[in-house]
């Protein structure tokens, strides 16, 4: 993938439209998907994804071909998404309080909380997606890049311009936040909580 991307970029830099179109084809689903999960909204995801590729196009000449392409493009996507969410949040939830452990209480395309105790995978998956949706962009991005986009830690660190240890810490905290949310929804048992470690 990276190899192909590099070859395509090289050609695109020389003015090859087809190469650029191919690059878009290769990455559009990943980027759109990432942005859809970040914003929770298809229209926003579409507009932002278009903007991501326009920026890629306009900055192709600045891209260092010795670097990996994924962190670069995800970084553009992540920055646009965070900006977008910030604007939207300021617009809609100006005085919405922020949760204590960094989990904001805003909801995107809100649906009713998940079913109480029906442990069916589909429902569970829906609830996980919903819980993920409720994470702050900072934690959401790191979780999406890790689990949905399946980037290696090093690429996540490069994408978010963070030290590797911070990425790991954020992943841990994000997972804990998800667990708490799922405990609240009844999927997990409260006694298993990360804060309360059972002794046996």
């Amino acid at each position: 993938m990276e190899f192909t991307a590099r070859a395509l970029i090289k050609r695109a830099k020389q003015g090859d439209t087809h190469a650029f179109a191919e690059l878009v084809e290769t990455y559009k689903d990943k980027i759109y998907s990432f942005l859809y999960r970040m914003t929770g909204n298809r229209e926003d995801a579409y507009d932002l994804a278009q903007e991501v590729f326009l920026r890629v196009y306009n900055n192709l000449h600045a891209f260092d071909e010795t670097m990996r392409f994924s962190p670069w493009i995800y970084r553009i996507a992540q920055n646009l998404a965070v900006d977008h969410l910030r604007k939207r949040r300021n617009l809609l939830y100006l005085d919405e309080p922020t949760g204590d452990d960094g989990v904001m209480s805003w909801q995107v395309e809100s649906s009713e909380p998940g079913p109480e105790a029906v442990v069916e995978f589909e429902d569970f998956r829906g609830s996980v997606a919903e819980a993920l949706n409720q994470l702050s962009p900072m934690y959401k991005a790191v979780m999406l890049l890790r689990f949905v986009q399946e980037l290696p830690y090093e690429d996540i660190a490069r994408t978010l311009d963070l030290p590797l240890t911070t990425v790991k810490t954020r992943l841990y905290r994000a997972r804990e936040a998800l667990r708490k949310n799922l405990i609240k929804q009844g999927y997990f048992e409260a006694s298993q909580g990360g804060t309360k470690i059972g002794l046996s």
């Binding site: 084809e25 996980v128 993920l132 689990f147 949905v148």
Partner: peptide, 16 residues
């Protein structure tokens, strides 16, 4: 498992 199972959403037709 649930996180990894989050389906990739495909970009709408005609995106490129």
């Amino acid at each position: 498992e649930a996180l990894q199972d989050c389906p990739q959403v495909r970009a709408p037709h005609g995106f490129t």
